[in-house]
Amino acid sequence: MQQSESQSTGAVGARSEQEPSNGEIVRFDQVVKRYGSNVVLNELDFSVAPGERVTLIGPSGSGKTTILRLLMTLESIDGGVIWVNGEPLSHMRRGGKLVKANETHLRRARKSIGMVFQQFNLFPNMSVRKNVTEGPVHSLGVAKDEANQRAEDLLDLVGLSDKIDAHPTQLSGGQQQRVAIARALAMRPQILLLDEVTSALDPELVAGVLDVLRNIAQTTDITMLCVTHEMSFARDVSHRVLMFDEGQVAEEGPPERIFGDPQEERTKSFLKAVLENG
């Protein structure tokens, strides 16, 4: 017992020496995630620079969504460390060592991260306004008036000023997703996670949501991690594309190269399959 404890802390301690430099806002360090015996992420390493917009592509089950869910701390990590802003997200410092983070640490750590979900996940019992102000008021302690002003501005940005007092059930899927984007931005996150945000939408509603996101990409310097099957959107907004397969990065590069001149066989066959169906 004693021995195994010193071993495990020693291993993590060694890792904490390689703390990320200032050029990185997110860093995955040998991250392992398993569901039962199924290894989803296999000692994954990658990092994201501040203001960078990264698109994650790859076949389903390749671990893209898991990366976002780990960053949002919706899943617990099985190995390695995730760093955000030079601070450990999945772990916390205690006496110079890194130990598994507790709920208090997570609540503080995840405040710099926002997420938009595939299924919107708006609160159906609250109006659009309440949905957008809930987080700032009750988690960041922003004054009500200020939060309201921010909500109005953001709903204007996503083109839904007239729906501020509506309830989510009265909105179309596309409108709900735009509210969800406003809700995530209201937290003023440094990092925005977009998890297949158009997959649950009817085809004619996809464009409206993507336009909003393009606009945000152009007008802000928010760091974005985006899982999507919309390849033209990925080409337009992202600085870098990561191709995932079997829990590892198979290939990465600027969108022009990945989409125009993929090197890896896996990337080629994946892109071929997606573009044929799309």
Partner: peptide, 24 residues
């Protein structure tokens, strides 16, 4: 997804139960 949205917004437990879960 409601629980996950609460985590994404870092809502304190009292709000999670009182404003989101119980009303639904």
């Amino acid at each position: 997804g409601q629980w996950e949205a609460c985590r994404a917004l870092s809502l304190p437990p009292l709000r999670v139960w009182g404003a989101v879960v119980m009303p639904q």
